[in-house]
Design a protein around this nucleic acid. Structure first.
Lengths: 117, 117
DNA sequence: ATGATAGTTAGGTATATGCTTAACCAATCA
DNA sequence: TGATTGGTTAAGCATATACCTAACTATCAT
């Protein structure tokens, strides 16, 4: 493994776990405490905390403690980075795809013999 | 770890590695052979093959061998799934964000009476 | 057939991940 | 003050990842 972990690495890695995605989904509806976040998940509280840390270190979630309860909230800016990367990729592919279709059209127009590929 | 690995798990996991993202980026410009795909990467050919397998099992890439060269190509449909998940999340968050802004507005307008909550 | 090229498989290692239980600290409440 | 609640830390374990080298197969050119 390359030992440098970029923003996108951490981001996509954070999203690659169903428990973490569940947390993100929950948080996108509004801030939640740690135990509320962990309760629906089929795992211990410390395990959930680890997932939370992964989300925080990816910049997806922010949290602050007041009294003895830590409240977590979405930090949605980072999601946009993922979206942009995907979009850029798709844009390239679509360009290529249109080009392919166009070449196909040219090929069909110039076709007079029946010899397919 | 939950032992069932969903489409999204595999997809985001596939995207979480810089070498694999480089492969995807390259493939979004057009089909490439295995060695051409591996050449720019700082790793052995077998290592690159493993990454390729991850991409294939995520459904991001398809490949077929003709003669002795295997040609890999993007299978872009799956990327859309990732995009949709992110979009859904963002939509929720934005709704919440607008609500927050609205409540803030109300609070500012009605400032003078201290009975907020 | 010989050898070079493209890819694949096997086996092994170091590190990362995901989880657990047990113990611990800090804030609230009876 | 002492129990409870909310969270955190520590230690340990099983599995997964990411990589390597060496050996192998299959195709193509000579």
């Amino acid at each position: 493994m390359l030992n440098q972990s970029s923003d996108l690495d951490r981001l996509f890695h954070a999203l690659s776990d169903p428990a973490r995605r569940a947390m993100v989904a929950r948080l996108s509806h509004g801030p939640v405490s740690v135990s509320d976040l962990a309760r629906p998940l089929p795992m211990s509280l410390p395990a959930a905390m680890q997932h939370l840390q992964v989300l925080e270190s990816a910049g997806l979630v922010r949290s602050q403690k007041v009294g003895r309860v830590r409240t977590c909230a979405m930090q949605p800016g980072v999601l946009v980075q993922a979206e942009q990367w995907i979009n850029a990729c798709r844009a390239e592919w679509e360009r290529l795809d249109r080009l392919g279709a166009y070449l196909q059209t040219l090929k069909n127009e110039g076709e007079g013999d029946g010899s397919g590929d």
